[in-house]
Write a protein that binds this DNA or RNA. Sequence first.
DNA 1: AATCGCGCCTGACGGC
DNA 2: TGCCGTCAGGCGCGAT
Length: 271
Amino acid sequence: MPELPEVETTRRGIERLIVGKTVRQVVIRQHALRQPVPADLPYLLQGQDVVAVRRRAKYLLLETPAGSVLIHLGMSGNLRVVPQETPLKKHDHLDLVLSDGKVLRYHDPRRFGLVLWAGNQPLMHPLLARLGPEPLEDDFDGAWLHRCARNRRLAVKAFLMDQKVVVGVGNIYASEALFMAGIHPARAAGKISAQRYQRLADAVKRVLFNSLEEGGTTLRDFSGADGRPGYFSQSLQVYGRSGEPCAACGRPVLSMVIGQRSSFYCNHCQR
DNA sequence: AATCGCGCCTGACGGC
DNA sequence: TGCCGTCAGGCGCGAT
């Protein structure tokens, strides 16, 4: 489900509703996520105050004085803050019951997500320690991409989705950014000029920022903490638009499989 | 070291 | 109506 804009939209949505609240109770209904939800999570969390909600890459970090909870939404996860009496739906796997009677509820049909305990140095957690730069920060730029791509022969789209290269770019925004930059998704990463990588870095920043402004992309079931959908799907130029006319030249948008993922592009505008 | 293919899991959808 | 194949916003693993 979520790439950076959807995770950040979720973070902003839950932040003001849970920071300053105390975790009264932790209810785990399903331990079997991508990794098991730690059995001692209730013991670690109960009575703790939520002091911050942070994001690193596509991970959310709920910070308490005792340590941080590390949450990943996988393909189909979401987090909502709902009244305690809200009826349970299928795949509502975990609740944090808060001191104001509200509940932070984790829902994830496919269970590709994660809820883990990351202690007091969460950025040192193995899942976070080796990630690449945040795309919206200044240390991510064309020079960084160009340097990372040296001698690499994989397709630039798969390269861009490598979380060691840059975090937060998934299957939707990889296609969108490459379209915006005029780069063919199957081009070998190591055969793209520094100048074109500058265009790509700028495109990544723009497409993610623009999506964030629209509350992310809702294709199926994504919605923010309040249940509202994101509207960026209306702004997608190529993703999911096979056969439709390219917004720039009118030729049909094509699709191909790169790294086992559907990729969308215009064969005329992207070289 | 880099790259590829697979599997994890459920649900939605289209064809027959 | 049901069954079957395909596909889906992610990611880590093992084989090459």
